[in-house]
Design a protein around this nucleic acid. Structure first.
Length: 291
DNA sequence: TGATATGTTATCTT
DNA sequence: CAAGATAACATATC
């Protein structure tokens, strides 16, 4: 699922592709996936691409922005104009054998919005479950900055002091606090599980019961795991929804220690990875080395 | 067939 | 009233 590392990967790659290009057209194949007036951004040039929490932000001229939330199954795939020929040639190939999120042929069944640029390139917003959205902002303030806590990857704003403070205030399981975007922005289910494992803490521990030493260890683990995941272009989960903008999978799934590994041996202590539900979400942990 | 997966938000409950 | 819990959203997979 696209969390901070996945969106960061998309941001970096997208910026190198579309910066300086002018939007020539927007085609919202699914109305619900696009919020705002398309006419307002047509003709505007892309100044840059940024990220806040799990939201991709395309900065345009005149103070306009395109904000994109991929939610569970969203993808942003960029195709150069010349790849149109390749697509035409592969028109006959069986898309299904490539799996559910096949992107050999675009647009596909799950393409919700297509943005065309003046170099002939196209950005495809695919989203199987249609929870995601693309929204026009006339001003960045419309994003609602106050809804987000500090960026989980930024050691300055995500300070130890701040972290201790918010954890002390709640009895909720520590894992749910990590995933609460108002407290910490960017961490979702995968990296919450991984960071808590790395820190050797049980995910169901009430957050106020963590010692100072544990809080410090957990903060370091979060920063470390997110950096590692970005280095490996993010995690393409079992359902393979997340893709880099080229359509390739990420690689961090090969480094996951607990997420999706129920029943497997713990890599630290050879205990068995267990699974429970916390807040209705899959929670994976080792019951012997996480305490 | 029905349980499961997921991020966010709306709504219900304590 | 606020914190916490749960349902809802959509759809494919097992």
């Amino acid at each position: 699922m696209p969390e901070l590392p996945e969106v960061e990967t998309i941001k970096l790659q997208l910026e190198s592709k579309i910066r300086g290009l002018r939007i020539t057209d927007i085609d919202a194949l699914n109305k619900k996936s696009f919020v705002g007036e398309m006419g307002e951004v047509r003709g505007l040039r892309v100044l840059g691409v940024r990220r806040r929490a799990k939201i991709t932000l395309i900065e345009l001229e005149k103070g306009f922005w395109l904000a994109i939330h991929l939610k569970l199954t969203g993808q942003l795939i960029y195709r150069e104009a010349k790849s149109e020929e390749r697509r035409a040639k592969s028109e006959n190939c069986d898309d299904l054998k490539e799996g559910l999120f096949a992107i050999t042929k675009l647009p596909n069944k799950y393409t919700r919005v297509i943005i065309s640029f003046d170099n002939g390139g196209k950005l495809f917003f695919n989203d199987l479950r249609m929870f995601g959205w693309m929204r026009v902002l006339r001003d960045l303030r419309e994003l609602g900055e106050e809804k987000f806590g500090p960026e989980a990857i930024d050691e300055k704003s995500f300070s130890l002091e701040y972290f201790k403070n918010i954890l002390a205030k709640s009895k909720k399981p520590i894992k749910l606090i990590l995933m609460d975007q108002e407290k910490l922005a960017g961490v979702g289910n995968i990296y919450a599980n991984e960071a808590i494992f790395s820190a050797g803490i049980l995910p169901m521990r009430p957050s106020s019961t963590l010692s100072d030493e544990e809080v410090e260890r957990l903060r370091s683990s979060i920063l470390k795991i997110l950096r590692e995941a970005i280095k490996h272009q993010g995690t393409s989960d079992k359902d393979e929804a997340y893709r880099q903008i080229s359509g390739e999978k990420g690689n961090f799934q090969n480094y996951l220690k607990v997420y999706g590994r129920e029943g497997e041996k713990c890599q630290k202590c050879s205990g068995i990875i267990k699974r429970v539900a916390l807040g209705g979400r899959g929670t994976f942990y080792c019951s012997s080395c996480q305490v």
